[in-house]
Design a protein around this nucleic acid. Structure first.
Length: 422
RNA sequence: GGAGGGAUGGCCGAGUGGACUAAGGCGGUUGUCUUGAAAACAACUGUGGGGGAAACCUCACCGGGGGUUCGAAUCCCUCUCCCUCCGCCA
């Protein structure tokens, strides 16, 4: 959420930012409601002040006739207050609803563009492996090695579900353990989180109201399945005031993620690239405003380290204005090369949300003992999304005989195994 | 799912309709005293909104929401969470 004071003082800047994102939002409505709200507040508060004053006098009065007269007066004042308060409430509800629909302001210097085609490659690292055979896509590798079972996944849960068998399941679990251990060394505190959270958490993280169609939930119990660990992590410090010296706070968490993924039928259906359920290790940071730029660089570097240790060729791309996520000011995608599918796979997306999520979540810190609370900055990044990392490993480490070598970095987590064979 | 008991400031805890401007204590900050510290004493002490150049004025907040009343921490309704017990359960 943007600061209403900022919008009021810089409407043109906000309008320009919306245009960059090609986003629609009712800025005029926001400004009008803001004006209306403040006018109503002044009226109702003047009346309340009077009522408070007179009510105290009434308590001290002895003459019954005076009392009755005053009480009658205040009764009518009370009626006007009720009516004004109702108007204030209605205006605030509408104002908040509009504010929740306004995306974050892109950071100055964000490359202009409309879609992911306009994202800018910052660097490409690691040589793409040379194969003296035609590398196979992971769905063939997985099926031939019997480590991915698509048919039974569909039988259990429908399209876009699969079962991992034996070394496939162990490989995924090894990746999770490897990443969590790696992030622990990098200074992230591990959290095991609820996978179902209340609706308010999604609003605070900026996923609602915009993505309501993509979230599985049980309205009866106000239980919403996490689409990413970013949602509960954002809310870890909701409605808290942190001390300056405990920032920056770095967290990591493994969670499954559940998404409706209402993409066009036929898109990304092959293999395990885009499912309704997938695993992810997430990285997250709460920082002071002046720390967030450095934290973003650290998190990107940490993700790159993970790719490098896994021996995956990757590239880092900065998202253009039109591709930037709703709550993000600046985002770097890390894409791993998948020789079988012959494409770059987005395995991580690292974003600095500034105070956008923090304002929604009311997560603040105090610069010093006497300072007023200030919103923190929040950053999030996938410490690698699992299915895609699994794809990259399978496709990069495949051998001519159809087997898959297990990356050195994962061997401590798969003791006794070096190669996956049929 | 059922019965009962709770939720008050950073923390503990009093408060059952009008001086609550929330007692008292702890903690914290500043000051006095002291070579310094401790102790003692004194003052101060939260969050958000509106107005204002500022000083300052004002409104709201006693778990959340709604209501009764001239006036609510206090009365009513409702929800959430915690505790005790019963039932059910992978």
């Amino acid at each position: 959420m943007l600061d209403i004071n900022f919008i009021r003082q810089n409407p043109e800047e906000v309008r320009a930012a919306l245009a960059l994102r090609r986003a629609e939002a009712d800025l005029e409505g926001v400004l009008a409601l803001d004006r209306e709200r403040r006018e109503l507040l002044q009226q109702t508060e003047t009346l309340k002040s009077e009522r408070n004053r007179v009510s105290k006098e009434i308590g001290r009065m002895k003459a019954a006739s005076d009392r009755e007269e005053r009480i009658a007066e205040m009764r009518s004042v009370g009626d006007r207050i009720s009516s004004l308060d109702e108007q204030v409430r209605a205006v605030e509800t509408r104002l908040r609803a509009l504010l929740l629909e306004i995306p974050n302001m892109p950071e100055p210097g964000t490359p202009l563009g409309e879609s992911d085609d306009d994202n800018v490659t910052v660097r490409e690292v690691g040589a793409r492996a040379e194969f003296d055979f035609t590398p196979k896509p992971h769905w063939e590798i997985g099926t031939e090695l019997s480590i991915i079972d698509f048919e039974r996944g569909v039988k259990l849960s429908g399209s876009r579900f699969y079962v991992l068998n034996d070394a496939g399941a162990r490989l995924q679990r090894a990746l999770i353990s490897f990443m969590l251990a790696q992030h622990a060394r990098q200074g992230y505190a591990e959290r095991y989180l609820p996978f179902m959270v209340k609706e308010i958490n999604f609003e605070a993280a900026g996923q609602l109201p915009k993505f309501v169609d993509n979230i599985y939930h049980d309205a009866e119990d106000d239980a919403w399945f996490v689409t990413t660990a970013e949602v509960p992590l954002t809310n870890l410090h909701r409605d808290e005031i942190l001390a300056a010296d405990e920032l920056p706070l770095y967290y990591t968490a493994y969670t499954p993620c559940f998404r409706r993924e209402k993409v066009a039928a036929g898109k990304d259906v092959r293999g395990i690239k885009r499912g309704h359920q997938f695993d992810k290790v997430e990285m997250y940071a709460f920082t002071r405003p002046e720390q967030s730029a450095d934290a973003l660089q650290k998190m990107v570097a940490d993700v790159e380290k993970t790719c490098a240790e896994l021996g995956l060729p990757y590239r880092v791309r900065q998202l253009c204005s039109g591709d930037l996520g709703f709550g993000s000011r600046i985002t770097y995608d890390i894409e791993a090369w998948a020789p079988g599918c012959d494409e770059w796979l987005e395995v991580s997306s690292v974003s600095n949300c500034g105070d956008f999520q923090a304002r929604r979540a009311n997560a603040r810190f105090r610069a010093n003992k006497d300072a007023k609370p200030t919103f923190v900055h929040t950053l999030n990044g996938s410490g690698l999304g699992l299915p895609r990392t699994l794809i990259a490993v399978l496709e990069n480490y495949q051998q001519a005989d159809g087997s898959v070598e297990i990356p050195e970095a994962l061997r401590p987590w798969m003791p006794g195994e070096e190669v996956i064979r049929a």
